[in-house]
């Protein structure tokens, strides 16, 4: 069931966030997310996040690019298959350049597609229950609770030195 209240504790220190996350796990409140101005390895480790799958998109893009690059060079060469000075029509060594560049290009396209799909952007829904201070100097821990637990969750954050923002709607 979706929580009635979304409350964000805003911290200025990563270590406080990590200890709050540990405490939150043992509490009745629902952890939703952390918004941070920087990628924090301490916080990521505390959340025990799985490895991102972006790399698979990159790899698939790279393989596709490798095939596309060589394929393009071979296809275009065979459209005019006149042997000049005994040189091969399908010349692998020069085509490596085309294959290599296409590998990088398509791997980057794959990487971008991976980022867009995995991060789920563009999507303004990420800004629901978001405090703009999280792109400045604050680390925001967002948790949910029912209406009766609101004061309890607020004091949970305040006890740990956080400023508190309450988002009214569910």
């Amino acid at each position: 069931m979706a929580p009635d209240r979304h409350i964000m504790g805003l911290f200025k220190d990563e270590d406080q966030v990590v200890s709050t996350l540990d405490a939150l796990k043992a509490s009745p409140f629902e952890f939703i997310r952390v918004n941070t101005p920087i990628p924090s390895h301490k916080i990521m480790d505390a959340l025990k996040l799985k490895k991102s799958k972006v790399g698979w998109f990159t790899l698939c893009g790279g393989i596709l690019g490798f095939l596309a690059g060589f394929g393009l060079a071979i296809f275009t060469a065979t459209r005019w298959d006149m042997i000049v000075s005994g040189k091969p029509i399908v010349a692998i060594i020069p085509f490596v350049v085309v294959g290599f560049e296409a590998t990088i290009l398509f791997a980057v396209f794959g990487n971008v597609i991976g980022l867009l799909t995995q991060m789920r952007v563009p999507n303004q829904d990420w800004l629901q229950h978001y405090d703009p201070r999280c792109s400045g100097e604050h680390f925001g821990v967002l948790a949910g609770c029912n209406a009766q637990q609101e004061d309890e969750l607020k004091s949970f954050f305040k006890q740990r030195g956080a400023d508190v923002t309450v988002f009214e709607t569910g």
Binding site: M44, M119, W126
Partner: peptide
């Protein structure tokens, strides 16, 4: 900004993607 909020789920993929870049 395309809805960037610095959520841990976004950073998780972003750091990986940036490294591949």
């Amino acid at each position: 900004a395309m809805g960037w909020s610095g959520a841990h789920e976004q950073w998780r993929h972003y750091t990986r993607g940036y490294l591949f870049f």
